[in-house]
Amino acid sequence: MATQTANVPAIEKSKNAKPLPFRYQFAASAFAGIFEILVMCEFNTKPILMRLIAKNVESVLDCFRKMIRNEGVLRLYRGITAPILMEVPKRAIKFSANDSFAPLYQNLFSAPTLTQPLAILAGASAGATESLVVVPFELVKIRLQDKTSTSSYTGLVDCLVKVIHQEGPSALYNGFEATLWRHIVWNAGYFGCIFQVRSKLPNPSTSLNPRKQKTVNDLSAGFVGGVVGTTLNTPLDVQKYASAFPKFVVVAREEGFRALYKGYLAKILRFGPGGGVLLVVYSAVLYVFGKAA
Rank of each mutant, 00 (worst) to 15 (best):
F64Y: 13
F64G: 15
R65W: 09
R65D: 06
R69T: 13
N70M: 06
N70I: 05
E71V: 08
G72P: 03
V73M: 09
V73N: 07
V73E: 14
L74W: 04
L74E: 11
R75S: 12
L76T: 02
R78M: 09
G79N: 02
I80S: 04
I80Q: 07
A82H: 07
A82F: 09
L85M: 13
E87T: 13
E87M: 15
E87R: 14
V88T: 03
V88H: 02
V88E: 03
P89Q: 07
P89V: 07
R91C: 10
R91H: 04
I93E: 12
I93T: 14
F95R: 15
N98V: 11
N98G: 10
D99V: 12
F101A: 12
A102D: 12
P103M: 12
P103N: 07
L104E: 05
Y105P: 01
S110T: 03
S110N: 09
A111V: 00
A111W: 00
P112W: 09
L114V: 01
L114I: 04
P117T: 07
P117M: 12
A119I: 01
A119F: 00
I120V: 11
I120C: 11
L121G: 00
L121D: 03
G123D: 12
A124Q: 01
S125L: 01
G127D: 04
A128R: 00
A128E: 06
A128K: 00
T129M: 09
T129I: 03
T129G: 10
E130A: 11
E130Y: 08
E130C: 07
E130H: 10
S131I: 05
S131L: 06
S131H: 10
L132D: 04
V133D: 09
V133P: 06
V134Y: 10
V134T: 15
V135L: 14
V135T: 14
P136S: 11
F137I: 08
F137L: 14
F137E: 05
F137V: 09
E138P: 05
E138T: 13
L139E: 06
I142K: 14
R143I: 04
R143C: 08
D146G: 08
D146V: 06
K147W: 14
T148H: 13
T148R: 14
T148A: 15
S149H: 01
S151A: 14
S151I: 03
S151H: 12
S152W: 02
S152G: 06
S152D: 12
G155S: 04
G155W: 02
D158I: 05
D158A: 07
C159T: 00
L160R: 03
V163G: 01
V163Q: 03
I164R: 04
H165R: 15
H165F: 10
Q166R: 05
Q166L: 07
